[in-house]
Amino acid sequence: MSQTNTASNGTPSSQDSITEVKPLIEVRNLKKHFPIRRGVLQRQVGAVQAVDGVSFNIIKGETLGLVGESGCGKSTTGRTILQLLSPTDGDVYLNGHSLTEMGRSELRKQRRRMQMIFQDPYSSLNPRMTVGNIIGEPLLIHNIGNAASRRERVQELLKLVGLNPYFINRYPHEFSGGQRQRIGVARALATNPSFIVADEPISALDVSIQAQVVNLLDDLKSELELTYLFIAHDLSMVRYISDRVAVMYLGRIVELSERDEVYDHPLHPYTQALLSAIPIPDPFKEEKRQRIILEGDVPSPANPPTGCRFHPRCGYATDVCRVEDPEFRNLGTENKPHMAACHHAEKFV
């Protein structure tokens, strides 16, 4: 994994465009392994390869959807990008500055530019703090304004996310899941960040509320010129909001392209299987829909399969798949890259 030019990382080439498209976030060969310790001496006996060499860019103003089954390393990717987990290897650049090489206090200063929205609206808000203190905390940490101006800003943020500013002195337990998620969004917006990792922000919500929160995030994105890494565990959730979609399997990114490319011409058998699992609203098409049933369980990231990590469950697997790790390569065009990590991807072009 050493592709460093923009094209091979799945972002549109900038050579022929007049204004250069600069990535806001560059992720280079990022790895996060969690050591497994056993015995009285707590010796390391192995490692969970939660994220094992992922590279991609996120361009200013776009939403990159990150999709994959539970446990494939999506949250770990998001948290490692934000340096909430220290990477085992690899680099992350924000606006060209390496976050991995930054000192602790400098990194803390940079944190106002990147924020996170969490999956569980119950554990993501401190139950002992008022809504006002929760949302205002990032301002306090970065010493922005005084008590009065922070309060004003919090009220403004509450309005922005569709909550009544009157609730500033309430505690989280007085709100529903959807409302709590809005509080989490308001907190993430407090310092005016440019980049937000939204880690399955709607999975824990009632279906009736999911659309509201996605709409809110979408509206905020255009209004505040935000850039998102939007994590979800199924493809149907990210379709609406994403500009590009990355599909993750067992710590690796296996496919990455523009949204419609991924949905209409999936090149990786895993993506095809995920797509085939989405019901089609049209009853005639739904009847003819062919489901690719994924056989077997997801292998353990502590002991991933050799060669292509997907081979034990892949219907197209051949001998080469069992021994050789497929390269993550561009099967699209220079201007419209379509990245996939499959030996036999040509078959599907």
């Binding site: 309005k159 996310v161 569709g162 909550l163 009544n164 509201q212 209004e223």
Partner: peptide, 16 residues
């Protein structure tokens, strides 16, 4: 501050 104070989606909590 680039954000306007206008709310982008309707207030979802009616005041009780």
């Amino acid at each position: 501050m680039t954000a306007s104070t206008k709310s982008v989606s309707p207030a979802t909590i009616p005041l009780n």
